[in-house]
Write a protein that binds this DNA or RNA. Structure first.
Length: 255
DNA sequence: CAACCGTGGCT
DNA sequence: TAGCCAAGGTT
């Protein structure tokens, strides 16, 4: 849920979710479409599908227990380098570097003296964090969490609260006088308005809103341009977020 | 590596 | 206001 989604938006949905599905086996026992429906407007609905798939995998391959090993975690659908390490470190206390967007920004500023991090690079990011990580297991877990929290709360992307920063006296960016970012321009996120993402979102909202099949006619009413509309629907079908329920009928995945 | 994938709050 | 950005992952 936390992938590319603010913590404050996740917490209420997570609490509802865990009340309904307290263990992977509970989630694995319901159709994937139920996960997509409960995901609601958290965004990126394929993550709901992946989370359900991971629950099935955990139930079938790991006896219903979330694996502790990073490599085993990486083998789960939708679990990448960050999430695998976060689970191993925060849930199980293992010593691994954990690098998220906050960590990258804090290291860029405090260590490299730059306003913004370079684009994410698995090798460089893990090397940089490994060099800072305390030797002790508990200390490493706290350091991973602490540097992330520092980035989320103090060393924020837009208006960092440097005056109240606990490491301001060793921050190289501060020492250098807060030089502006001079690296390559980061890729600009495409406009949402009028995008395929928007159309996909509209179709998914319609699929979530009813337990009856959604018709082609209803989908046509969601977006005026046929080519883009059909591209969005085709994509959702290819992703498994929608399935055909007969000619011109669509539902959330039920198997 | 670049493109793609939702949604909503903040400036 | 129109971007920017958010505990990323997959193709």
């Amino acid at each position: 849920m936390l992938q590319q989604t603010p913590v404050s938006r996740v917490i209420p949905r997570l609490e509802e979710w865990l009340e309904r599905w307290p263990t992977p086996a509970h989630l694995a026992a319901v159709p994937p479409g139920e996960a997509v429906r409960a995901w609601a407007t958290l965004g990126y609905p394929r993550r709901a599908l992946w989370l359900h798939a991971a629950a099935v995998e955990i139930t079938e391959r790991h006896g219903g227990l979330v694996p502790e090993d990073v490599d085993a975690l990486l083998g789960l659908t939708g679990i990448g380098d960050y999430t695998a390490r976060a689970v191993a470190a925060f849930a199980y206390g293992h010593r691994h570097p954990v690098v998220d967007t906050n960590t990258r920004r804090v290291i860029a500023r405090a260590v490299a003296g730059q306003a913004e991090p370079a684009p994410p690079s698995r090798g460089r990011d893990l090397d940089a964090m490994s060099a800072l990580l305390p030797a002790g297991r508990d200390e490493a877990a706290r350091f991973n969490a602490g540097i992330m929290e520092l980035g989320a709360v103090v060393c924020t992307a837009k208006s960092p609260r440097c005056d109240g920063c606990p490491i301001r006296d060793l921050c190289r960016w501060r020492a250098a006088g807060y030089p502006a970012y001079s690296g390559p321009r980061k890729a600009v996120q495409k406009k949402f308005e009028g995008s395929d993402r928007q159309v996909r979102g509209l179709i998914m909202a319609e699929l979530r809103a009813t337990r009856h099949p959604v018709t082609d006619a209803e989908i046509s009413g969601l977006w005026p341009e046929a080519v883009q509309r059909e591209r969005a629907l085709t994509g959702l079908l290819a992703d498994g977020l929608a399935v055909s329920a007969g000619a011109g009928l669509y539902v959330l995945p039920h198997e």
